[in-house]
């Protein structure tokens, strides 16, 4: 019994020790743009991972907030949306902390077909608007 209690208390310690580094990936042909968006995401410490996709005049940024800060991800989203829009005023920007968008953008990073990526981003934007 004692061993089990000790083990249960140790679980969070092991989980916290996982990964402190930010991993940010960008799908874009323009070096400069991707560096800028990387810099913006890196500046917010509440985020531990993020993907950004540039396609035509759209920019989709999907991030994941750190586990303990997940409850205020709406605020983080809003803040980042503002910052990214300042950097890219002529693009249609959507920042989301939703896991669905993060998962789908992860798949899109390796997608070669531009047409397909554009369609997918359009679909995700619609999905992000759904409330119920």
């Amino acid at each position: 019994m004692k061993k089990m209690v000790v083990a249960i208390f140790l679980i969070p310690v092991f989980l916290i020790g996982c990964n402190q580094e930010q991993t940010i990936e960008v799908k874009d042909s323009n070096e400069e743009q991707s560096e800028t968006v990387k810099e913006v995401i890196r500046n917010s410490d509440e985020i531990y991972t993020g993907n950004a996709i540039f396609i035509e005049d759209q920019l989709l940024v999907a991030v994941q907030a750190k586990p303990w800060l997940d409850y205020k991800k709406r605020k983080i989203e809003k803040k980042l949306q503002k910052e990214v829009e300042e950097q890219f005023p002529d693009l249609e920007v959507l920042v989301s902390a939703d896991y669905k968008l993060y998962w789908e953008t992860q798949k899109l990073l390796d997608e070669g077909d531009e047409q397909k990526v554009s369609e997918e981003v359009e679909k995700l934007k619609k999905l992000a608007k759904e409330e119920t």
């Binding site: 939703d98 896991y99 669905k100 998962w103 999905l127 992000a128 759904e130 409330e131 119920t132």
Partner: peptide
């Protein structure tokens, strides 16, 4: 549901 269907964290 998030991974295999079209649900977001709000709708799931």
């Amino acid at each position: 549901y998030i991974i295999f269907f079209n649900f977001t964290e709000t709708t799931v």
